[in-house]
Amino acid sequence: MEIIPTNTQNIEHALKLILETIGENPNREGLQGTPQRIIKMWQEIFRGYDNSQKPTITTFENDEHTSDLVFDSGDYFSMCEHHMLPFFGKYYFAYIPHPDGRILGISKIARVVGYFSARLQLQERLAKDIIDMLSEALNNQALGFAIVMKGTHLCKSMRGVKNNGKMTVARLTGIFQTDNELRKEFYKLIDLQDE
């Protein structure tokens, strides 16, 4: 699925109207290529709507029958669906494989985070989308998943209340909901990452 059509004349026209509406001259030298640059940028930052870019999640036999906590963290960048302004931050992910199930290829976690981040999003939905896709890749057999997403929302920081736009979302499934010690271990790993 192509998210931006090949014929972009209507989009370019709309972007020029937006520039005029905010009081700019879309024909001045610095703005002449701006509509085309925005279209190209959208193709990149909204690639999450393109099913052909959906990551393939590699899984492996759990030959060691491990059920240890597996932890990963990294950065993410997304766009708020309410104001189309960026929100971004760090994610902290963990799961417990089923000893008789499969395990994830760890690099695929970042790819799934990046894919779902590349849409107009809510931070809460983003966390759910990530866990759902990874759980499906393991045939819903993992013992539990946990993700914490810390984000800074420019729609709160640079407009509106113009206040600290920080937000944290935690989504826990399976054993992470019921095992307090495991949950504490997960949060301790997050604290170690933030030191």
Rank of each mutant, 00 (worst) to 15 (best):
S67M: 09
H153N: 09
M158Y: 12
F116K: 03
G89Q: 07
K54P: 00
L143C: 07
E181M: 04
I45P: 02
F93G: 05
E20Y: 04
L17A: 14
Q121H: 03
H83T: 13
Y115E: 02
H13D: 12
S135P: 01
K184C: 00
F116Y: 15
K108M: 10
T178N: 13
D68E: 15
I106P: 00
Q32M: 13
S78A: 11
V169H: 09
S52T: 15
G33N: 15
T58K: 13
L192D: 14
R28N: 03
E185V: 04
E181Y: 04
R119N: 06
S135I: 00
L31N: 03
T6A: 15
S107Y: 09
A94T: 05
R159Y: 04
L120W: 08
D68I: 03
I4E: 01
Q193S: 14
E124G: 11
K150I: 12
Y115I: 01
G160R: 02
Y95F: 07
C80Y: 05
D50M: 11
L182T: 05
V112L: 03
N164L: 13
H13E: 13
L17R: 15
R171L: 12
L143T: 02
L69Q: 09
R125I: 10
R171I: 08
F145W: 10
V148Y: 01
H153F: 08
E2V: 02
D72F: 06
S107F: 09
G89I: 06
V112T: 10
D132L: 11
D132W: 07
K54V: 02
M167I: 13
A137E: 07
H13K: 14
D50A: 12
D63F: 07
T6K: 15
Y187P: 00
T56W: 04
L17N: 15
V70S: 03
E64V: 09
Y92P: 04
R171D: 09
I130M: 05
V148C: 05
N180H: 06
R119G: 05
R119C: 07
P86A: 08
R37V: 07
D129Q: 15
